[in-house]
């Protein structure tokens, strides 16, 4: 297990290095920040000064070398726009995103597993049909549309919930509800499919012959075996949320990492873009390793 973790950590590090190269050079292709930060009629000297100050005049490879050198010391540089260390800006936003993702995925996982398992047990029944119908709608509905419609109904129309921002518990409800729908639909389908096959497996037949009640048959014998493909999809969906739910965060004015990334790209605040990508990448690598560990915990036949 330790050897496996070391190997995974090492592989992640290589990927991260690739990511640094890719993002650094791609972001430079988007144009010169001076045209954005300084007024249109700024003098050539002030432009020159700005470039000099932020090191934009050096050859690009020198800039890259300097950036990597700083990175090794966990110095992501200063945000051009916010005059604060880029990493602080990103971590602040990341905490918001992490909370949002954690709460949403916990709710999604519990709901999808319980409803999907019951639907699979009563396959073809009324409960199954209703669950399948709504999960398909959920998995296919575009989230920007749901976000806007829900603001129209619950904030503007009924006036129950705030339209955007943070502050109270009420502010969290709409973003979580909107983010919930798609992963819930998807994961429910995976749970249901996986449970249908484990419920028809030979060991479930044994459990029935032993005289077990339905509840242990479904939630002890079938579910744990059905979880492996489900965990893969949960990881996938959680990664999407950790990346920042760009659209939903923007619509609800939620100060998460997705909104920060979009803003920074538009502002050519490269240091922040890079720091944000690195932080989310590290988070996703960590999560994938956790999922691999979870596989081994759930299935004793998997040993690394």
């Amino acid at each position: 297990m330790t050897a496996f973790l070391q190997k995974r950590a090492f592989a992640s590090l290589i990927s991260l290095m690739g990511l640094v190269v890719l993002v650094f050079f791609l972001s430079r292709l988007t144009g010169d920040p001076t045209t954005l930060y300084l007024p249109v009629d700024a003098s050539l000297e002030s432009r020159e000064q700005f470039r000099e100050l932020h090191g934009l005049n050096d050859p690009i490879l020198v800039q890259f070398g300097r950036y990597v050198g700083d990175l090794v010391q966990f110095d992501f540089g200063m945000s051009i726009r916010r005059s604060a260390p880029a990493i602080d800006v990103v971590l602040q936003a990341f905490v918001w995103t992490l909370q949002l993702a954690l709460i949403t995925m916990t709710l999604v996982t519990v709901a999808a597993i319980v409803i999907g398992s019951i639907a699979a047990f009563h396959i073809g029944g009324v409960f199954d049909r209703i669950a399948t119908f709504f999960s398909l709608i959920g998995a296919s509905a575009p989230d920007f549309w749901i976000a806007i419609i829900s603001i129209v109904i619950f904030s503007v129309g009924l006036g129950w919930l705030p339209t955007s921002g943070t502050g109270t518990v009420w502010h969290w409800i709409l973003p979580i509800a909107v983010l919930f729908i798609r992963p819930f639909g998807l994961i429910l389908q995976v749970v249901r499919g996986s449970m249908v096959s484990t419920l028809s497996s030979a060991y479930v037949k044994t459990a029935r012959a032993k005289g077990l009640r339905n509840k242990p048959i479904i939630f002890v014998h079938a579910l744990r075996n059905a979880m492996l493909p489900v965990i893969t999809v949960i990881g996938d969906q959680a990664a999407a949320l950790l990346n920042g739910a760009v659209v939903v965060e923007t619509i609800f004015g939620f100060p998460g990492v997705g909104k920060l990334m979009i803003d920074s790209i538009l502002q050519r605040d490269f240091t922040v873009v890079l720091a944000a990508i690195m932080v989310t990448a590290v988070a996703i690598f960590v999560m994938n390793i956790l999922i691999d560990i979870l596989y081994a915990v759930l299935d004793p036949r998997i040993r690394y």
Binding site: Y203, T206, A209, R213, H221, R224
Partner: peptide, 22 residues
Amino acid sequence: RDLNGRRIAMIFQDPLSHLNPV
């Protein structure tokens, strides 16, 4: 269900797939 396992028990072919692997 009460009789199953208690008064009438059953074993199957291919015990590997009839025992829960986890």
